[in-house]
Design a protein around this nucleic acid. Structure first.
Lengths: 263, 263
DNA sequence: CAGGTAGTGCGCGATTCGTGCAATGGTGCG
DNA sequence: CGCACCATTGCACGAATCGCGCACTACCTG
């Protein structure tokens, strides 16, 4: 606390808050030998800088900023994704090995899966950071990460390491995310590297499910496509355009329309 | 909001808080058509259930509970780990490919690395979930995850997938964590599976650094050991017992003692 | 129909928050 | 060396928030 204690004290506050998980104004003012007023001022500054979050009697560490964008995407069409996730989890049976692709819909699936306690001895292979995080430390589920270079945007694993990992695995079911889905072209992504990997994933699965809510059907926002296996199932929700759904069924694709639950 | 809106409303509160990141009491009471009192009561219940965290004027999503234990471990001997991390980062040069083992000390290293802006074109291979999370979305750093089964306790990748991934890589420097270090026996871990993997990591690195603060020196809490390469460097801090340090130097191990910084 | 349970709105005292104001200490310039 | 200047801190006061008790309603149950 020698020369300019202000900056040092703020670092110390951040440290205490992030390590203990919660630091009260009283504790801080006592521990650092300054008035509660000063602590409040510090907390205001640190909150403005985005270094921690303010609570009623003190401060707590901030939720990881990278999760924010994901939460937001998960929030869009939430009920649709929730419905799709519930249907998907309902077809999974104990003892199976399943693949979870990266994406917000598959993350919703992971969250539902975590809370569905009736499944045991499940092995879940995750291709994304967020799905892995959602399932970490879930009893009865072995989580296996694909590995590879971490694609900044989608928090997904890509690259040769991911490809070679897939070559050593196979799955009872693969749940694929998509930027958009087309009846004949299949899964559309922004990145070619991504689509190649998705093809490999699907080729190793006994059955492939593409989870995509209504708004993703029939669009072609990008120009990288993943070739689909001969048989696959599209899981969408009741917001899907019946015409679009019909187009998929005409192409021989099994289509499941998940109902939004009553609650 | 038909029959028993209470439960539904609370789910909705959780949803809004987790998706928007922050929900104020006023917004919630307005959006849900109930008094601020009721919202407060709900927030109290939900906080007690551990479903979200209370802030001054509202609520926010909870920091992931798995991070809590890590934060705590990082908090123990914080200054020591910080000093070690700073020294370690100072030897890294632009363009290198480095390996970061799992563990709290290596996570501290990752955090320092993230804030050290003067390095470019770095490739960091991470063997743990926390180190990966700390480096995600850092400019100038390619993050590569090892992959494999996620060990619940240490949040580390283990198993055949991790081993085969390592076989395809090599590193300029490997920074290894350890439960404890011994001058002749090397790295001690709770798990044999873990030690085998660590040996493989070190065998692929041009140079191996073991980052371990003073308290970890010379102990033998478990009975699984990783055989060390012929040359390796122990990076510890000034809290290390000089006698223990001497033992390492006698065994031909290079020992770096990181000074705790002045601030 | 009586009784119990859960939920809600309202109002009050207690706590906490934010800010203006004066005092202190360190810094730079003439 | 003197002096103006700036940042920081402590203190006090008005404002906002919080927690809780109380009364009322709705619903289920015996």
């Amino acid at each position: 606390m020698a020369r300019d204690g202000a900056q040092t004290r703020r670092s110390e506050i951040v440290r205490l808050a992030t390590t203990t998980g919660l630091a009260s104004v009283d504790e801080l003012s006592d521990h650092l030998g300054v008035t509660a007023s000063t602590i409040r001022r510090d907390l205001a500054k640190l909150t403005a800088q985005g270094k921690l979050a303010r609570t009623y009697g003190g401060a707590m560490p901030l939720t990881h900023p990278t999760e924010a964008s994901l939460r937001q995407r998960l929030g869009e069409a939430f009920t649709a994704k929730q419905a799709i996730a519930r249907w998907a989890v309902s077809v999974i049976e104990s003892g199976e090995t399943i693949l979870l692709d990266a994406g917000s819909t598959t993350t919703a699936l992971a969250q539902v899966l975590k809370d569905a306690g009736d499944l045991t001895e499940l092995t879940v292979v995750t291709a994304g950071l967020s799905t892995m995080g959602a399932l970490a430390e879930t009893d009865g589920i072995d989580v296996i990460a694909l590995g590879g270079r971490l694609r900044t945007m989608s928090q997904a694993f890509v690259g040769p390491l991911a490809e070679s990992a897939i070559a050593r695995l196979s799955f009872d079911r693969a749940f694929m995310g998509a930027d958009s889905v087309h009846p004949e072209r299949g899964i559309c992504e922004a990145d070619l590297e991504q689509t190649l990997l998705k093809e490999l994933m699907m080729s190793r699965a006994a059955h492939t499910y593409v989870v995509a809510h209504g708004a993703k059907l029939g669009k072609s926002p990008f120009h990288a496509w993943a070739v689909m296996p001969p048989r696959w199932t599209l899981v969408t929700d009741e917001s899907a355009d019946p015409v679009a759904v019909h187009a998929f069924r005409d192409s021989g694709v099994e289509v499941i329309i998940a109902r939004h639950s009553a609650d």
